[in-house]
């Protein structure tokens, strides 16, 4: 099936693989137009050509709209029955669920340091770091991280996290062996 119309909801827009069909269609349209415009000027006016072009373009809006409706239907069928928390949990997974629990147990503003085995500089690590920073806030893992001013340590996907815990910190929340939230004693 020729895939001429697309509505792939990429986060940056619609990234669609190049298709020869599409290329062929566009070029035959342009060439016909230019040919008729320059070589058949006497029998076909440019007015007729312009209006014909618009009509063809408007006709292509129909399949486009159906695809948009289909995309909306797909999204609605997944997300409409969900609560806001369920939606975020589905979209962001573990970083969101972990952050939600941490912020419940540690209310208010805190300076924290994130300790993890995930490489935050590349691939999915970028996204995980940003999601944690956003959902953990007002527990801030960015501003004072690594400066020694932090009063909270966040261990996320850190193997044997407890072994790395400094003595002056106490565990606040430990959902698994690799995830842990600890606060400096006397700081809370």
């Amino acid at each position: 099936m020729f895939k001429v119309f697309d509505f792939n909801c990429g986060y940056n827009g619609c990234f669609v693989p190049l298709s020869q069909t599409k290329e062929l269609l566009i070029f035959s349209f342009c060439l016909t137009y230019v040919f008729l415009f320059f070589f058949k000027k006497k029998c076909i006016s440019h007015q007729a050509l312009m209006i014909a072009g618009i009509v063809v373009m408007v006709i292509t809006l129909l399949p486009q709209t159906f695809l948009r409706l289909a995309a909306l239907e797909e999204r609605a069928s997944i997300y409409l029955p969900m609560s806001a928390v369920e939606k975020r949990a589905r979209l962001f997974g573990e970083p969101y669920v972990f952050s939600l629990q941490a912020t419940h147990l540690l209310p208010g503003r805190h300076s924290a340091r994130l300790v993890t085995d995930i490489n935050l500089q590349e691939g999915d690590g970028w996204g995980i770091n940003d999601r944690l920073a956003y959902y953990l806030y007002p527990i801030d893992i960015r501003i004072h991280s690594g400066t020694g001013k932090e009063d909270v340590l966040i261990y996320f996907h850190k193997d044997k996290a407890v072994q790395f815990l400094p003595k002056d910190y106490k565990i606040i929340f430990k959902p698994s062996d690799i995830d842990l939230v600890a606060a400096r004693k006397g700081a809370l």
Binding site: V4, F5, G13, S19, I26, T60
Partner: peptide, 8 residues
């Protein structure tokens, strides 16, 4: 070629 705009 990308689907960001109407094909025409």
């Amino acid at each position: 070629l990308w689907g960001n705009w109407n094909i025409l």
